[in-house]
């Protein structure tokens, strides 16, 4: 049983830190931006998870660290039992092929001077698919998979001739070309119109299910996760503060930060205009010098003086399978 479970884990982040040096005049180090600052999680094979958090909390940095585009400052990522930092040459290429990346900005993701055929051929060539017909066949396959069914019309087009939704489908097609076992999608729809968003999210979710892919879906919008992920990780200031299956997290959020996020949004109703929302004051802290103790304490309406501003809260498990890093769950602090 134990071993079987181990086998099911595709990716694991252990105490992951990715810091960026902040320099003045190009050389004087004046500090570090702790974009990812102590993150642990495991993703099972075939599981879809969402990372949710405000802009600047480290989501994209985490994504790029998982992709091996940033070297972690400390901690490590294991993929399929292998530590990422130890992969070299061929093995590293192999890894890059097994993780598809849909980056945040579809408009910047596609090289403007390549038509769709060329930009989809490139990764195949790089990964050694030498036969032209094999490439063409593979390209047609993925384009159909992302529902760009007018393949002959799409192939000769340049990115600027495509709508935002079509561009994003091409980006997804490119991520699927090399038959990855995992997909990292960084805010795949935030730049798109509301009317296309659902269509793209459905597409991603269906592909994920059909291919049993592991999907890490990054978003700043809690209202879009319900149908597109199995589990949610809520991030704040470089850390994960709460994690739980989607329904549990949305229906009974445990961490005060998650509670604020959910209080700030409401299902569409004309009455929304009548009442002001409860919004915690202030803004997320500087990652150069994050506050001591719980990073949310300067804004937290429930902060416990003498505790929250001193000690970092560990994860508690207030309900089975539902984790929250907050002192309120500690027996010692329950009133």
């Amino acid at each position: 049983m134990e071993a079987e479970q181990q086998n099911d884990i595709l990716l694991k982040a252990n105490n992951l830190h990715t810091w960026f040096d902040l320099r003045q005049w190009g050389f004087l180090r004046i500090g570090s931006v702790r974009a990812v600052d102590g993150v642990d999680f495991e993703l099972a094979r075939g599981e879809a998870v969402a990372f949710v958090g405000e802009s600047g909390c480290g989501k994209s940095t985490l994504a790029r660290t998982l992709l091996g585009l940033h070297r972690p400052t400390s901690g490590d990522v294991t993929f399929d039992g292998q530590e990422l930092s130890t992969l070299k040459g061929e093995a590293r290429q192999q890894y890059l092929a097994s993780v598809g990346y849909v980056q945040q900005d579809p408009f910047g993701a596609l090289p403007p001077f390549m038509d769709v055929r060329r930009l989809l051929s490139e990764p195949l060539i790089i990964h050694g698919v030498k036969d032209r017909d094999t490439r063409e066949k593979r390209i047609r396959q993925v384009l159909e998979e992302v529902r760009l069914t007018q393949v002959d019309e799409i192939l000769p087009k340049f990115p600027h001739m495509l709508s935002g939704g079509q561009q994003q489908r091409v980006v997804i097609a490119r991520a699927l070309l090399l038959e990855p076992s995992m997909l990292i999608a960084d805010e795949p729809v935030s730049m798109l119109d509301a009317s296309v968003r659902v269509e793209i999210l459905n597409l991603l979710r269906n592909i994920q299910k059909q291919r049993s892919l592991t999907l890490a879906f990054i978003t700043h919008d809690l209202s879009t996760v319900r149908h597109y992920a199995d589990r949610i990780f809520v991030m704040y200031a470089g850390r994960i503060v709460e994690q739980a299956p989607v329904e549990k997290l949305l229906d009974s959020p445990q961490h005060p930060y998650t509670q604020s996020l959910l209080a700030a949004i409401a299902d569409v109703d004309a009455d929304n205009a009548l009442e002001e929302r409860d919004v915690p004051s202030g803004e997320p802290p500087s990652l150069l010098k994050p506050p001591q103790g719980c990073r949310f304490h300067p804004r937290c309406p429930k902060a416990i003086a003498g505790t929250c501003d001193v000690k970092d809260p560990p994860f508690f498990e207030p309900q089975t399978g539902h984790f929250s890093a907050c002192w309120l769950h500690d027996e010692a602090h329950r009133g």
Partner: peptide, 21 residues
């Protein structure tokens, strides 16, 4: 169709979408 495509936090069914452009 636009209203059907709005995601709702506590709704069991997935939102719809507007095919085409």
């Amino acid at each position: 169709m636009l209203m059907d495509s709005v995601p709702r936090l506590h709704q069991a069914e997935a939102p719809g979408y507007i095919p085409g452009e």
